[in-house]
Design a protein around this nucleic acid. Sequence first.
DNA 1: CGATAATCTACTAAAACTATAGGATAAAAG
DNA 2: CTTTTATCCTATAGTTTTAGTAGATTATCG
Lengths: 135, 135
Amino acid sequence: MLSKKTKYGLKALTYLARVKGKEPVQIAEIAKQENISQKFLESILLTLRRNGFLGSKKGKGGGYYLIKEPHEIPMTTVMRVLEGPIAMVPCVSLNFYEKCGDCPDEATCSVHKLMIQVRDSALDVYRSNTLADLL
Amino acid sequence: MLSKKTKYGLKALTYLARVKGKEPVQIAEIAKQENISQKFLESILLTLRRNGFLGSKKGKGGGYYLIKEPHEIPMTTVMRVLEGPIAMVPCVSLNFYEKCGDCPDEATCSVHKLMIQVRDSALDVYRSNTLADLL
DNA sequence: CGATAATCTACTAAAACTATAGGATAAAAG
DNA sequence: CTTTTATCCTATAGTTTTAGTAGATTATCG
């Protein structure tokens, strides 16, 4: 399941990408237009800013804005920041690898075998989509 | 993330598939060999039986066994029973479709667009793998 | 200054997941 | 028929994750 955090984050990024120009957009506006709890969205935008996707401006006329062009934002990085590892098990994760507690041998593990394929197919999709492709 | 339930279920199915012949295998044996809590595994095997993957025999010499041949068990059905919908959002699910609460229009929803692709790529993988392919 | 709006920390309610406990039921062996 | 073996079933406890809230703080503009 995709978490609401990711879902809302993607919607917010899309919203900002659709707004032409780099004018800051207020949280309240995004929340209202996309039917998202404002406070929840607040924390999501904060993590997007901390991870280099958004810039913010405080005070009157402030808000959030995209730092890069939409076509420069690949879905792989967005998903990793919002949703975490793309792999469904840590033992097949490229960026968050961890050995399984059970499972003495990855080479012969049936789950491992299957999940490698699932990871690769998901990566294909995320790599071939940037934010611009979602508009 | 893949739930432990699914992971253990897959391991148990694989274990049973590797055992030649249709002799019942005891829960305790599978649990020990695969490092799974026996009681937890018990409930997983029960749902696999209820969904037509396994047969069981009680009493001495009893246990669980595969009802079908491994190559007749596609991963799509296994995953749907153990893990639930393959889609990451209900609004792109084939078997568990549900409209999103937010999101007035699926046709223009950026998340929808992306998740359709992810679903299709995952389906490709699960459809092209049967239990026999994991051995 | 005063109004506006983002920032940050901490907290909580609810749901899902993982696992365990304890006994009921059924089959086979002696 | 009794004992042993092993599945069947219900309930529940502990933990983690998710989703959302509260409230004080800080920066900016006019």
